[in-house]
Protein backbone atom coordinates (compact mmCIF):
# COMPACT_ATOMS: atom_id res chain seq x y z
CA UNK A 1 0.00 0.00 0.00
CA UNK A 2 2.87 2.36 0.76
CA UNK A 3 4.00 2.00 -2.81
CA UNK A 4 0.84 3.81 -3.86
CA UNK A 5 2.27 7.04 -2.55
CA UNK A 6 5.07 7.02 -5.11
CA UNK A 7 2.68 6.86 -8.08
CA UNK A 8 2.17 10.65 -8.36
CA UNK A 9 5.93 11.13 -8.47
CA UNK A 10 6.37 8.51 -11.18
CA UNK A 11 3.60 10.01 -13.30
CA UNK A 12 5.07 13.46 -12.89
CA UNK A 13 8.50 12.20 -13.87
CA UNK A 14 7.08 10.80 -17.11
CA UNK A 15 5.29 14.08 -17.74
CA UNK A 16 8.44 16.11 -17.16
CA UNK A 17 10.38 13.97 -19.62
CA UNK A 18 7.66 14.46 -22.23
CA UNK A 19 7.69 18.19 -21.63
CA UNK A 20 11.46 18.27 -22.00
CA UNK A 21 11.26 16.46 -25.33
CA UNK A 22 8.41 18.80 -26.25
CA UNK A 23 10.62 21.84 -25.81
CA UNK A 24 12.68 20.72 -28.77
CA UNK A 25 9.67 20.21 -31.03
CA UNK A 26 8.06 22.75 -33.28
CA UNK A 27 4.30 22.57 -32.84
CA UNK A 28 3.79 25.18 -35.52
CA UNK A 29 5.24 23.03 -38.28
CA UNK A 30 2.44 21.04 -39.79
CA UNK A 31 3.56 18.11 -41.91
CA UNK A 32 2.23 17.96 -45.44
CA UNK A 33 -0.49 15.44 -46.12
CA UNK A 34 0.74 15.24 -49.69
CA UNK A 35 4.17 13.71 -49.14
CA UNK A 36 4.69 10.85 -51.63
CA UNK A 37 1.42 11.71 -53.33
CA UNK A 38 1.10 12.96 -56.91
CA UNK A 39 0.87 16.73 -57.31
CA UNK A 40 -2.73 17.91 -57.37
CA UNK A 41 -4.53 18.49 -60.66
CA UNK A 42 -4.27 22.14 -61.56
CA UNK A 43 -3.75 24.51 -64.43
CA UNK A 44 -2.71 28.08 -63.70
CA UNK A 45 -2.38 30.93 -66.19
CA UNK A 46 0.98 32.75 -66.31
CA UNK A 47 1.75 35.70 -64.06
CA UNK A 48 0.97 38.95 -65.85
CA UNK A 49 3.56 39.90 -68.53
CA UNK A 50 4.98 36.37 -68.53
CA UNK A 51 4.48 33.58 -71.02
CA UNK A 52 4.56 30.27 -69.18
CA UNK A 53 1.86 29.27 -66.74
CA UNK A 54 2.06 26.17 -64.56
CA UNK A 55 -0.03 23.01 -64.69
CA UNK A 56 0.20 19.47 -63.30
CA UNK A 57 1.58 18.08 -66.56
CA UNK A 58 4.57 20.43 -66.33
CA UNK A 59 5.64 18.59 -63.20
CA UNK A 60 5.33 15.13 -64.74
CA UNK A 61 7.97 15.41 -67.42
CA UNK A 62 10.50 13.03 -65.87
CA UNK A 63 12.54 15.70 -64.18
CA UNK A 64 13.05 16.57 -60.51
CA UNK A 65 11.66 20.08 -59.88
CA UNK A 66 11.18 22.56 -57.10
CA UNK A 67 7.90 24.43 -56.72
CA UNK A 68 8.02 27.62 -54.70
CA UNK A 69 4.87 29.34 -53.47
CA UNK A 70 5.46 33.08 -53.33
CA UNK A 71 3.71 36.46 -53.32
CA UNK A 72 4.73 40.07 -53.62
CA UNK A 73 2.95 40.90 -50.36
CA UNK A 74 5.02 38.33 -48.49
CA UNK A 75 8.01 39.83 -46.72
CA UNK A 76 9.92 36.59 -46.08
CA UNK A 77 9.71 35.81 -49.83
CA UNK A 78 12.03 38.75 -50.39
CA UNK A 79 14.50 37.17 -47.99
CA UNK A 80 14.70 33.83 -49.80
CA UNK A 81 14.54 35.35 -53.27
CA UNK A 82 18.33 35.82 -53.75
CA UNK A 83 18.85 32.15 -52.83
CA UNK A 84 16.54 31.12 -55.65
CA UNK A 85 18.11 33.60 -58.08
CA UNK A 86 21.49 31.98 -57.44
CA UNK A 87 19.97 28.52 -57.81
CA UNK A 88 18.39 29.46 -61.13
CA UNK A 89 21.74 30.72 -62.33
CA UNK A 90 23.49 27.49 -61.35
CA UNK A 91 20.85 25.54 -63.25
CA UNK A 92 21.17 22.56 -60.94
CA UNK A 93 17.43 22.03 -60.68
CA UNK A 94 14.41 23.55 -62.37
CA UNK A 95 12.40 25.93 -60.19
CA UNK A 96 8.73 26.69 -60.83
CA UNK A 97 6.62 29.24 -59.00
CA UNK A 98 3.06 29.54 -57.81
CA UNK A 99 2.14 33.17 -57.26
CA UNK A 100 -0.27 32.92 -54.34
CA UNK A 101 -3.22 35.34 -53.96
CA UNK A 102 -1.42 38.24 -55.52
CA UNK A 103 -2.39 41.33 -57.43
CA UNK A 104 -1.29 40.79 -61.11
CA UNK A 105 0.47 44.16 -61.40
CA UNK A 106 2.27 43.79 -58.09
CA UNK A 107 3.40 40.29 -58.98
CA UNK A 108 4.67 41.39 -62.38
CA UNK A 109 6.51 44.37 -60.91
CA UNK A 110 8.00 42.25 -58.16
CA UNK A 111 9.47 39.78 -60.65
CA UNK A 112 10.67 42.62 -62.90
CA UNK A 113 12.36 44.34 -60.02
CA UNK A 114 14.04 41.48 -58.19
CA UNK A 115 14.46 39.07 -61.08
CA UNK A 116 12.59 35.94 -62.14
CA UNK A 117 14.17 32.67 -61.00
CA UNK A 118 11.16 30.61 -62.14
CA UNK A 119 11.00 28.67 -65.37
CA UNK A 120 7.23 28.68 -65.15
CA UNK A 121 5.16 30.82 -62.80
CA UNK A 122 1.42 30.31 -62.46
CA UNK A 123 -0.86 32.92 -60.94
CA UNK A 124 -3.17 31.51 -58.28
CA UNK A 125 -5.41 34.53 -57.86
CA UNK A 126 -7.96 33.17 -55.40
CA UNK A 127 -5.69 30.74 -53.56
CA UNK A 128 -7.63 27.65 -54.58
CA UNK A 129 -4.65 25.82 -56.04
CA UNK A 130 -2.74 26.79 -52.92
CA UNK A 131 -5.33 24.95 -50.85
CA UNK A 132 -4.99 21.91 -53.15
CA UNK A 133 -1.27 21.96 -52.41
CA UNK A 134 -1.97 22.24 -48.69
CA UNK A 135 -0.41 25.68 -48.47
CA UNK A 136 -0.99 27.44 -45.16
CA UNK A 137 1.74 30.04 -45.04
CA UNK A 138 3.80 31.71 -47.71
CA UNK A 139 6.57 31.01 -48.62
CA UNK A 140 6.48 27.25 -48.97
CA UNK A 141 8.73 25.14 -51.18
CA UNK A 142 8.06 21.64 -52.52
CA UNK A 143 10.40 19.04 -54.00
CA UNK A 144 8.70 17.09 -56.80
CA UNK A 145 10.27 13.92 -58.21
CA UNK A 146 10.46 12.69 -61.82
CA UNK A 147 7.10 10.99 -61.58
CA UNK A 148 5.36 14.14 -60.35
CA UNK A 149 5.17 13.07 -56.74
CA UNK A 150 5.67 15.51 -53.90
CA UNK A 151 8.66 14.32 -51.87
CA UNK A 152 9.35 17.13 -49.44
CA UNK A 153 7.82 20.35 -48.21
CA UNK A 154 9.68 23.22 -46.62
CA UNK A 155 7.61 25.80 -44.76
CA UNK A 156 8.99 29.32 -44.40
CA UNK A 157 12.10 30.97 -45.76
CA UNK A 158 14.57 28.73 -47.59
CA UNK A 159 18.00 29.86 -46.44
CA UNK A 160 21.19 28.99 -48.31
CA UNK A 161 21.80 26.49 -45.54
CA UNK A 162 18.37 24.87 -45.98
CA UNK A 163 18.99 24.63 -49.71
CA UNK A 164 22.49 23.18 -49.43
CA UNK A 165 21.82 20.79 -46.58
CA UNK A 166 18.24 19.69 -46.98
CA UNK A 167 16.76 20.41 -50.36
CA UNK A 168 19.65 19.88 -52.80
CA UNK A 169 20.86 16.62 -51.21
CA UNK A 170 17.32 15.27 -51.61
CA UNK A 171 17.20 16.48 -55.22
CA UNK A 172 20.51 14.72 -55.95
CA UNK A 173 19.31 11.56 -54.30
CA UNK A 174 16.12 11.57 -56.33
CA UNK A 175 18.05 12.20 -59.52
CA UNK A 176 20.45 9.37 -58.72
CA UNK A 177 17.60 6.96 -58.09
CA UNK A 178 16.41 7.13 -61.63
Amino acid sequence: MRLGYIIPFVLFFALAVALYVGLGLKPRDIPSALIDKPVPEFNLPPVKDHDLGLKSADLQVGEVTLVNVFASWCGPCRVEHPVFMALAKSGEVTLHGINYKDDPDNASNWLARYGNPYKRAGADRNGRVGIDWGVYGVPETFVVDQGGRIRYKHVGVVSQDDLDNKILPLVRKLKAKK
Binding site: I30, P31, S32, A33, L34, P40, I131, D132, W133, G134, Y136
Partner: peptide
Protein backbone atom coordinates in the same frame (compact mmCIF):
# COMPACT_ATOMS: atom_id res chain seq x y z
CA UNK B 1 -9.84 19.08 -46.74
CA UNK B 2 -8.08 16.27 -44.86
CA UNK B 3 -6.65 15.06 -48.20
CA UNK B 4 -4.93 18.40 -48.53
CA UNK B 5 -3.97 19.25 -44.96
CA UNK B 6 -3.97 15.94 -43.11
CA UNK B 7 -5.73 14.79 -39.95
CA UNK B 8 -4.17 17.72 -38.22
Amino acid sequence: IVDRYGDW
